[in-house]
Amino acid sequence: MAPTFPRARRPQLGYDVDQVDEFLVVARRAYDGTMRPGDPKVTAENIRLTAFGMQKGGYSTAHVDAALERLEDAFAARERQIAARLHGDEAWLTEARTTAQVVANRLARPDRERFDRVNPLVLGYSVKEVDRFAERLGRYFTDGWPIGIDDVRTVTFTAQRGGYREAQVDLVLDAVVDVMLAVR
């Protein structure tokens, strides 16, 4: 059987092959509606938050990440269709607008005050880098400036002592992705 993804070169780390293959089997059953008892629920959000162990010679992280992004898009589109059928398009868009407003309010805060800070001895995200990216996102929400969903999914920040709390920044970025997927 051919491998699902290209492998990382042997001394390099890639995603754990068995974990990735198992996740994709469960995701396929979830999408096809053939879930088995004990299968975990798979949603666009679960896919975004999925993490795999690393192993030498594992699957190429870039290829798996790209596939997960496409899978997330497919699940998000299906979730939107289901929600629209059950509650109507307006309810779906109202929820997206509400989330967008909460995010926009957060992004509108002054520089260096957008997120909680970690202890000065602990590493967090670079305040300057996060604030710069938050400005771009703020323009997306207020003025419709173009920014791609992949820009949000793949943004990285360097570490800084006393920086922004990573979990809080990541939650806001996840909410931005949710809004972007909802209005596609």
Score class of each variant (00 low, 15 high):
Arg97Ala: 05
Asn119Met: 13
Leu68Phe: 03
Ile149Gln: 04
Arg10Ser: 10
Ala77Gln: 13
Asp178Pro: 02
Lys128Val: 15
Asp39Tyr: 00
Ala167Lys: 07
Arg85Pro: 00
Ala51Asn: 13
Asp65Gly: 15
Met54Ile: 14
Ala159Pro: 03
Pro146Gly: 00
Arg28Ala: 12
Met180Arg: 05
Val130Ser: 00
Arg48Gln: 00
His63Ile: 08
Leu107His: 01
Glu135Thr: 12
Val20Thr: 05
Leu121Met: 15
Arg153Phe: 06
Phe52Thr: 01
Glu166Met: 15
Ala76Trp: 01
Pro120His: 13
Asp111Asn: 10
Arg29Pro: 02
Leu137Met: 06
Asp65Leu: 12
Val64Gly: 06
Val155Thr: 07
Leu68Thr: 03
Ala182Tyr: 04
Ala62Phe: 09
Val177Thr: 12
Ala77Tyr: 13
Val169Met: 08
Gln81Phe: 01
Arg36Lys: 04
Asp131Glu: 07
Pro110Ala: 11
Thr98Arg: 06
Ser126Cys: 14
Ala2Ile: 08
Asp73Tyr: 14
Ala104Asn: 10
Phe5Val: 08
Glu113Trp: 14
Arg184Pro: 00
Leu173Lys: 05
Thr98Asn: 05
Ala104Gly: 02
Pro110Arg: 04
Pro40Asn: 07
Arg7Glu: 12
Ala134Asn: 01
Gly144Glu: 03
Gly162Phe: 12
Asp150Gln: 15
Pro40Ile: 04
Asp174Cys: 09
Leu24Val: 01
Met54Asp: 14
Ile82Gln: 10
Glu135Ala: 12
Pro3Asn: 14
Ile149Arg: 05
Arg36Ala: 15
Leu24Ala: 11
Ser60Pro: 07
Asp65Thr: 09
Gly53Cys: 04
Lys41Leu: 11
Val179Gln: 06
Met1Arg: 10
Met1Gln: 01
Val17Leu: 13
Pro6Ile: 01
Val130Gln: 00
Gln101Glu: 05
Glu113Pro: 07
Phe5His: 11
Ala182Trp: 00
Asp39Val: 05
Ala2Trp: 14
Asp111Cys: 10
Glu22Phe: 08
Ala104His: 14
Met1Asp: 03
Leu123Phe: 15
Leu121Tyr: 15
Ala134Leu: 08
Ala67Tyr: 10
Phe75Thr: 00
Asp143Asn: 04
Thr156Cys: 15
Glu22Gln: 06
Ser60Ala: 14
Asp73Ser: 09
Arg85Leu: 11
Met1Tyr: 07
Ala77Glu: 04
Pro3Lys: 15
Arg78His: 13
Asp178Leu: 13
Val176Gln: 02
Arg114His: 09
Asp151Pro: 14
Thr156Trp: 04
Arg117Ala: 09
Val103Gln: 03
Thr154Pro: 14
Val103Trp: 00
Ala91Gly: 02
Pro110Ile: 08
Lys41Trp: 12
Arg78Lys: 09
Arg10Gln: 03
Tyr31His: 02
Glu72Asp: 06
Asp89Trp: 15
Ala51Ile: 11
Pro120Gly: 06
Thr43Asn: 08
Ser60Phe: 12
Ile47Met: 07
Arg165Gln: 14
Asp150Tyr: 09
Thr4Pro: 11
Leu121Gln: 13
Phe52Glu: 05
Arg117Lys: 11
Ala30Cys: 05
Ala175Leu: 02
Arg97Cys: 08
Asp116His: 12
